[in-house]
Design a binder for these strands. Structure first.
Lengths: 242, 242
DNA sequence: TCACCAATAACTGTATACAATTTGCAGACC
DNA sequence: GGTCTGCAAATTGTATACAGTTATTGGTGA
């Protein structure tokens, strides 16, 4: 009993240690468990409000309770779980208010990162972003497009070179993913249109950052997220986030 | 072996369970341990770069390793500890770059909360802030002033009524406290001057929020934090945060 | 004196054990 | 039928055990 059982229906990342003697430590079980539960929540296999108990989870994944406990602690920090007063955990239920909140927080973080990126980027950074755009042009699945989109924004966070900003983003990232996944399940989206909209927006973002003007770059963040805001407002107008 | 030993030199919060059958659960050991280590770091009893190992800490606090492990996980999330590739934890060492970063993140969070507070506050909220100011007028110790200052900003976060903004603030809060504590240890400050400066700034903040204009309120956040920024720049100009 | 190596001590990662609490259910009682 | 009660099962909080890994120390040879 030492590795997560891979026989169930869920796919495994199979992140074996790269043999290239990188300074990469063997991923702790807790991390694997957290990642697995995270995927289950985002994919909807664990539905909102579902209880996530330590013992059944540990049994299901064929590990002891200790790594599960730590995983749950992390997932609670990430806002995917809420712990009740009796210590039990449930998958967080997202309301429309939560959607607005997540949107607002994301706007705050991205505006800051865009501004910093505009001030601090190197030509290599721009190339990297350009590459992401090229990859998205060729993407043929919604999943791939979604991943590349997230990666694009992550790259900009990294370009801003602020470990704490990146950290806050990582904290919110799971919720953003959950948010996106839920929306995609609710509304039927067409791959090509999503990709084209994203591409257009990303190209604008890249230009804004390249301009080295933080105000222009910051406005790009706002404009990129605006469509979501509009859609949210039309769905249910629930107090302004900004 | 079940409660944190209180015999050492460190004071204890003595947060006994309120017998008033509140829906308040008994605080877990992990939380108490985390709080204790947090205090030790902020107060400087645990110096920067010091190793915080599980077994000695568990022995010192007279608990088992499990609560300590969870506490360390939380404190790492809070940015007070960094874990090395071998799994060991050290107290984070703050450089001047970190000071700038923390200042920048705080400015981002506070600007957002000030804007939201301007839009959403009730008269009770303003009364509460006013009360904080009154208490500070009477404060006679630097410690008290510092606590009230933090409480003032915390209140504004709460007024903005965004659980995730509050959560990100809580995540950064320890580092802000550490930041402040270190500065106060480095530069000799006079109680009355700190209090007077804070009071003046807080009064301006209150007015800005009361104006219900998010732009004015946001500018208050900037102006409140500006002195720190100036001081930081004069100490060592290290790349603009904004 | 310095480099190298082995034995040992200490620490982390994970599993298991146990006590206290909570939940759920079955049957008694109104 | 509905509600109360008490027992059994499940779950959490904490402690301990054990294996594998890392740091340390002390000694040996050049």
């Amino acid at each position: 009993m030492s590795t997560i059982q891979t026989s169930t229906t869920l796919q495994t990342p199979a992140k074996v240690i790269s043999t290239t003697r990188m300074e990469r430590r063997r991923p702790k079980l807790a991390e694997q468990v957290a990642e697995r539960i995270r995927r289950d929540i985002i994919s909807g296999r664990l539905s909102q409000g579902a209880m996530v108990a330590e013992i059944p989870t540990a049994r299901r994944l064929n590990v002891s309770r200790v790594p599960v406990r730590e995983a749950l602690l992390v997932l609670e920090q990430d806002g995917l779980l809420v712990s009740e007063s009796n210590g039990r955990c449930r998958v967080r239920t997202l309301t429309n208010t939560d959607f607005h909140e997540i949107y607002g927080i994301r706007l705050m973080l991205e505006t800051t990162s865009f501004r910093l990126a505009a001030l601090q980027h190197t030509s290599a950074d721009l190339k990297s972003l350009q590459n992401n755009i090229r990859l998205m042009e060729r993407a043929r699945s919604l999943h791939k497009v979604t991943l590349l989109d997230l990666e694009f924004h992550h790259q900009i966070m990294q370009i801003s070179r602020q470990s704490r900003l990146l950290h806050l983003w990582q904290t919110m990232r799971s919720q953003v993913q959950l948010f996106t996944a839920i929306l995609q399940r609710e509304i039927s989206v067409v791959i090509s249109s999503v990709r084209d909209v994203s591409l257009q927006a990303h190209q604008a973002c890249l230009q804004g950052i390249a301009s080295r003007d933080p105000d222009i770059a910051g406005r790009c963040a706002l404009e990129h997220l605006e469509p979501w805001q509009a859609w949210l407002r039309s769905t249910r107008p629930e107090g302004g986030v900004r």
